[in-house]
Write a protein that binds this DNA or RNA. Structure first.
Ligand SMILES: [Mn+2]
Ligand SMILES: [Mn+2]
Ligand SMILES: [Zn+2]
Ligand SMILES: [Zn+2]
Lengths: 138, 138
DNA sequence: ACAAAGATACAACATTGTTGCGTTTAACAA
DNA sequence: TTGTTAAACGCAACAATGTTGTATCTTTGT
């Protein structure tokens, strides 16, 4: 499905900023920070605040998920599975390279299961393994 | 062992700020943010920057570990096991309540195991489950 | 008690993220 | 296609978290 229809499907109006952001994230295995994305858009004059709002809207719509790196900075990646408005289920781990600072989504290779104490109710999770990626280890 | 000797054992000089911070974290099952700790010290005039540096020094010394909450804010808790200078091994999960904002260390109840892609080398991890804690769910 | 090394406190700054509001743009119906 | 309305944008101002530089004070070891 093309970007325009993805947005429409989620009830998001189709604007140039949103299309740009969607295209920037589409097909990537990495999650990008605001700084990363502003770099990508440096020729296209993407407003900093608009970018924040687009990503927030995307997250609420279940289009992207947010991961916090060990420095406290948010990274965003498109959801692969059928996340919906207010109901994410991308409970996978991430790998953040301390050398190249790439944030990898480990959709397939990570298996997470938690035993929570009685009475605790899970809404979501933020899992980031940090270290050195394959390229930077070699 | 008392606070003074714990500091000495790690090669940290014994100062009033460090004793205060150590005592504030000691015996707690929760990880505290800078804001939390400043609250605790409100009568004792703990300098904000000193607090940052004390916690950084403690972390490097393997005395405390740092957890990042889903808002990107750092929380600190004393290490329970034998972490050393530059070598932490507190690979446990945490639970952050979206209502009371407490950050629980799940030392005992969480079991974490990850299958990383070939070539990736793990140095540590930040795992935070968020939702509502027992008290706030009731 | 003294000298050297290290910790503290204050100011200045950086980065990340939020809020308010006037202007522009997209959606939808006439 | 055009007009109306609601939403998104862009700019400024602000807030929160965290870092760096430096002069002063405290701790440590002699
Ligand atoms: Mn992901
Ligand atoms: Mn912990
Ligand atoms: Zn790397
Ligand atoms: Zn709670």
């Amino acid at each position: 499905m093309d970007a325009t229809n993805v947005l429409k499907e989620r009830g998001l109006s189709v604007t140039s900023s949103r299309l740009q952001v969607y295209e920037a994230l589409h097909g990537e295995a990495l999650a990008f920070s605001h700084a990363d994305l502003e770099q990508k858009f440096k020729r296209k004059k993407m407003d900093r605040i608009t970018l924040y709002r687009v990503l927030n809207d995307f997250e609420e719509a279940g289009l992207v998920h947010k991961v916090i790196d060990p420095g406290g900075v948010a990274h965003f990646a498109l959801c692969k599975d059928g996340c919906l408005h207010g109901h994410h289920h991308d409970h996978h781990a991430h790998f953040n390279c301390q050398r190249c600072h790439k944030m990898f989504c480990l959709d397939t290779d990570s298996q997470l299961s938690f035993k929570l104490p009685r009475g605790f109710k899970i809404a979501g999770l933020n899992t980031v393994i940090y270290g050195t990626c394959k390229t930077c280890s070699a």
